[in-house]
Amino acid sequence: MTTVEITITPLVVPATLDDADAAEFRAFAALSRRICDEAVGLPDLSPSAVELLPDWLDGTDTVQVGFVARLDGEIAGMVTIAYAQEDGAQTAEIDLLVPEEHWGRGIEEALLAHAEADAVARGRSILQTWTLHRPEEAERMLVPRTGWGRVPATALSGLFTTAGYELEQVERNSELDLRGDDEPLREALRRAEAVAGADYRVRSWTLPTPPELRDGFAAILARLSTDAPSGDMDFVAEQWDAERVVRREERITEGGQLMSVVAVEHVPTGDLVAYNELVIAAERTGVTHQFGTLVARDHRGHRLGTIVKCANLLRWRELVPSSATVSTFNAEENRPMLDINEAIGFVPVSYAGAWQKRV
């Protein structure tokens, strides 16, 4: 490795993307997409600048900061850190972005050290980060502490290992071709609804969430941070209310995105006990992304996961017929959800490793 002198400065976040100081933030979004393309050939895994900016401007629920590394005045890499704002939160989520052409020159180490120092200065003691991996076998395969799944070693995973991070979990990134026959979806939905019975009914909407459903939706969104399989990744229990639902949806729509939500209501209590979200960028011909999917722990075993997934995919085909692909991530140990995905036609296209370090 050849060490070079670099400069690291805070990422400039503009008020709008039309401002004179927006070039650096636009470069950040482009670099993030480039990294996804270099790592696994899927640039659409990363949002555009238009989609990212609202999240960066509203620090109510999550504060985001970034740093830019330069060589001879040219951007050579970046790092971002997200800080959850719940009381007692100890995590810092780091995203290291160094393209292949600048790797091995000391830039990645400098940026990671800078991010870790920022986290410690803010009182955070749990550092988390993610790596992307192609679905292939390599001479050296990495197995997470969960024991589920494995990914090929990369230069980035080697950096985190050397820096003291542990691979806690592997997630599978799967895609579904939306242009295929929808009868398997319809049949799976019919069978699942028959199992669930009259105690459960489907509720669906396109953002914004109807006012009368916001409290219930907030409650099930909060459970994603506690009920979803996460290995030993230490996530703070998120605090949600109707106001946070509104804030989140404003950020999504300000970024030009469209979201469809299908939830299941437990009729005897009126609680929303399962949900699935599908989102697409302003360019409606692009890749659709699944955001959250969850069945509350005390309502599992009634095929509610199949109901929300299939019902939303069928709804989506009518809402956005121009999108050809849906992309989703699921923990490798989450066999119930992976079984659903595989049964309706999702196939693996990449993997993500979840890493953690305590300081």
Results as ranks from 00 to 15, higher is better:
100 E>S: 09
109 E>S: 12
160 F>V: 10
57 L>H: 13
285 T>W: 08
311 A>T: 01
13 V>N: 12
65 V>S: 11
251 R>G: 11
37 D>I: 06
161 T>L: 14
270 G>A: 00
254 E>W: 00
137 E>F: 07
269 T>I: 02
9 T>M: 07
204 S>D: 13
5 E>A: 15
113 A>C: 05
174 S>W: 02
112 L>S: 02
216 G>S: 00
91 T>R: 14
129 T>I: 01
44 D>K: 04
111 L>E: 00
77 G>E: 01
206 T>D: 10
123 G>K: 12
12 V>I: 15
312 N>W: 12
82 A>R: 12
214 R>I: 02
44 D>A: 14
49 A>E: 05
53 L>M: 11
115 A>E: 01
292 G>H: 08
238 E>W: 09
359 V>H: 11
250 E>V: 11
334 N>K: 05
258 L>H: 09
351 Y>I: 05
63 V>E: 15
357 K>Y: 11
167 L>E: 09
153 A>Y: 05
166 E>A: 13
342 E>D: 15
17 L>F: 07
257 Q>L: 04
167 L>Q: 03
173 N>I: 02
221 L>E: 10
28 F>P: 01
204 S>Q: 15
14 P>V: 13
5 E>S: 13
135 P>N: 07
323 S>D: 02
295 V>G: 01
259 M>T: 13
35 I>K: 12
42 L>H: 11
231 G>W: 10
71 L>I: 13
191 R>Y: 00
296 A>M: 04
310 C>H: 12
263 A>H: 08
184 P>H: 02
256 G>C: 10
22 A>Y: 00
308 V>A: 14
236 V>N: 05
259 M>A: 01
321 P>E: 13
3 T>M: 09
233 M>H: 08
337 M>V: 12
34 R>K: 15
328 T>W: 03
155 A>F: 02
87 D>G: 10
86 E>M: 09
314 L>D: 04
210 P>E: 04
69 A>R: 06
281 A>Y: 00
123 G>S: 14
342 E>P: 01
229 P>A: 09
132 L>H: 06
9 T>C: 05
187 E>Y: 04
136 E>M: 04
217 F>D: 00
184 P>W: 10
329 F>D: 14
117 A>T: 13
58 D>W: 06
331 A>N: 05
1 M>P: 08
228 A>P: 00
120 V>E: 12
298 D>E: 15
119 A>Q: 11
32 S>E: 14
223 R>K: 15
54 P>E: 09
58 D>F: 14
155 A>C: 03
